[in-house]
Design a binder for these strands. Structure first.
Lengths: 159, 159
DNA sequence: TATTGTTATACTCTATAACTATA
DNA sequence: TATAGTTATAGAGTATAACAATA
């Protein structure tokens, strides 16, 4: 098979590779920044023994007392079977409670316990402090521009 | 266990859950936007039978002819064992070639074939068109602000 | 019959240890 | 001995099918 860009004998590339094409893509930069934020956030959550997905679930249950597992799964964009283990973990740790609805005994009403409420307040404060550090140097106007851009992506995607 | 925010009898939550806490977090919005862009991008790559990771590899090999697998793995932040199957796939499809270096017969010099070069040009054009559509409505100044913000995250992270 | 939660399972991605061949 | 590439494998994360209890 014929090749392009190849000298007569195979040759090693320069030490630091060129990212010229990928770096032109905003989606690529977006992904790299998000991965950085995520691994950084994982460190912030570690002392609380929470992962991003258990953190999201805890916060959503606190903000929406009485939520069912199906509703939570839909809100988190997670398949129902996969949510079961997440809710199991939070319940085993005594952070949330599952109560059967009297009006429909198939569904659970999810609520945070007092311990869950306390932990939630602590970890949200820690995450907000983490975010403040991560976005330190951004003016309020710049932050608004970034938020507007992210909202724009939502409108333009899935067209 | 005692609970907070719980009425005397468990009650169903409102239909649309509240995201008030999560939506305040820029990292959360960043992640959601990135996931949207990625699934949208996956659709763009599907006709070319490329995934994001094989696309990145193909582009990096084209931009850095002679790159070794170790260098490519480091550049892509992928473990060497996992890169093998990616390179295998591109080679099987005749898009890249593996040539042993005469100066060090342990390492491969990776290059794109003519077919790989053609496909790369096509798919990069498609991805750039896809990005233009996704970020349509952003002024050049706004785009620069977003890029600067993403660069700022890189500087602030891993502190 | 349809829905909630569950189990079992499979498939993808990613991470680690150990091997081979070359240096 | 050290490194490049490879194999095997284990662990997450995620997706689908099918079941029991309830509606």
């Amino acid at each position: 098979m014929s090749r392009v860009n190849r000298p007569s004998a195979p040759q090693a590339a320069a030490h630091v590779p060129s990212f010229t094409t990928l770096r032109r893509l905003l989606g690529y930069r977006l992904r790299r920044a998000t991965m950085l934020v995520q691994s950084d956030l994982a460190e912030t959550l570690k002392p609380f023994e929470l992962r991003m997905i258990t953190f999201s679930a805890l916060v959503l249950i606190r903000d929406n007392p009485g939520l069912s597992q199906s509703q939570l799964a839909a809100a988190m964009d997670v398949e129902r079977p996969n949510l079961v283990v997440i809710v199991d973990e939070l319940e085993t740790r005594g952070l949330i409670a599952r109560d059967r609805l009297a009006t429909d005994r198939r569904t659970y009403a999810l609520t945070v316990t007092e311990a869950g409420d306390r932990l939630c307040a602590e970890v949200v404060a820690a995450v907000e402090a983490h975010e403040a550090r991560l976005f330190d140097g951004l003016t309020e106007a710049e932050r608004k521009t970034v938020e507007a851009a992210l909202a724009l992506i939502h409108r333009n995607a899935k067209g």
